[in-house]
Design a protein around this nucleic acid. Structure first.
Lengths: 229, 229
DNA sequence: TGTACATCAGTGAACGCGCGTTCACTGATGTAC
DNA sequence: TGTACATCAGTGAACGCGCGTTCACTGATGTAC
């Protein structure tokens, strides 16, 4: 079907459902095997369709990669949004998010409140090695491909805005620029932590997790700029 | 020369020099073009030798990858070691390291001392986009290959020990476990920061750099555990 | 209700290419006697 | 000093394979009349 254009991104017909199915398989394969083994043929095989059929929906490999990336980042953002949208109420511990709180607070004690729940939920996300691996792939891809980098930066821009809003609610006196700066450092810490908690740069230890939680919480909730040197 | 074994890793003859030359080219290519284009043929072409000649020194691609990785991590560690070996003296600002201090302290003021110089030097390293890109590649590689992961964890283990020693000198009362935990979080922050300062996850901003410097410094120098919630 | 036709969904074979690896071979360089 | 020989350093061609892409083709499904 060379003269016909590929199906558009909107609509809810059979084609759209198939397209979504193919993306499901592609995403699964990318997480399981990494970018190096992410070929049109292997995705088609994983999805149980023929090569030509996959190409009916994604004529070029780059189309498939872009679509998978968009979905992965969109899904991560969807997962973050409800966590970060809850305005922090600094009373007794709020309802912990579903899935429990696997991060031990170590010697820091048990910091209550929505911010602590938020950090714990974000770190709990890193318990899925496949997801951490996927983000490592995405970073490497972004480092080499400016189009991917633009998409990744868009993701972290939105993520950062959500965190900054959370901080603004949590630390009333703080101006917007300071909130953004704190949010940026918070993301640096959490994303860096994924490398050191998922076996890539190191394995998790309860002590480091405790200190991580404390530092992340300070970024989210500490009332004023640090006392200085 | 199929029956002869490849040259050993020790010695200083012509073979060793050639081997080092080839690794220079390979490293350069890996940084410039990424792992996806890192093939035996492209490395041979970059080094100006024939494919068969490269294979005389590195019979399999995996041998070349392992050798380059070892050198990259070793070289980074060599760069870190003198920075971290200097015991922190908390007097007026020590001699800034060569290359200047491109990180602005923002609203935090100018925290003096060896720790601040250290953080500034580490962040200055991240001004080289090629190096950041290379580490992104290495993380992705480690996420997929346990042998690579082991080498990467070894690197960060040594790096972490150096940082922990620095902290132990800087914060006299702190016990060893707390120093290690702080060192781990420090590395999470600095490695995560590389993504957000080199255009991968975001671009640098002076405000975020200022907050980053302040948070990193606190991890290195703050006298006691945080005041708690 | 039936027919003609366009579009959609899916098949299957072939293309040229770059890849890692194998292998037989050739000079150059040392080393023993 | 000369010769024989082993090892080192480097060449060049070929292999089978998986890759992305192209393209002609076939049923199924809708749509107009």
């Amino acid at each position: 079907m060379s003269p016909a254009p590929p199906p558009a991104g909107t609509g809810t017909g059979k084609g759209e459902r198939k397209r979504a199915e193919l993306l499901d398989s592609a995403e699964e394969l990318l997480i399981a095997s990494g970018y190096a083994e992410f070929s049109m043929r292997s995705v088609a095989a994983a999805a149980g369709v023929r090569l030509g059929h996959l190409q009916y929906y994604f004529p070029a490999r780059s189309d498939l990669v872009a679509a998978v990336l968009e979905r992965v980042l969109g899904r991560s953002l969807d997962r973050l949004e409800p966590l970060l949208a809850t305005a922090p109420v600094e009373g007794p511990a709020a309802e912990p998010p579903a899935g429990g709180a696997p991060v031990r607070a170590g010697a820091v004690g048990a910091p209550a409140g929505a911010s602590a729940d938020l950090v714990r939920a974000l770190l709990a996300d890193q318990d899925d090695p496949a997801l951490v691996r996927l983000f490592a792939e995405v970073w490497a891809l972004a480092a080499l491909d400016e189009a991917v980098a633009e998409a990744v930066r868009g993701f972290y821009r939105k993520y950062g805005e959500l965190v900054a809003t959370h901080i603004a609610c949590s630390v009333p006196g703080l101006d917007a620029a300071a909130c953004r700066a704190r949010a940026a450092v918070f993301m640096m810490l959490v994303e860096g932590a994924s490398l050191f908690r998922a076996g890539i740069a190191a394995h998790r230890t309860p002590e480091a997790d405790g200190r991580l939680l404390a530092t992340a919480l300070e970024l989210l909730t500490r009332p004023e700029p640090p006392p200085g040197a």
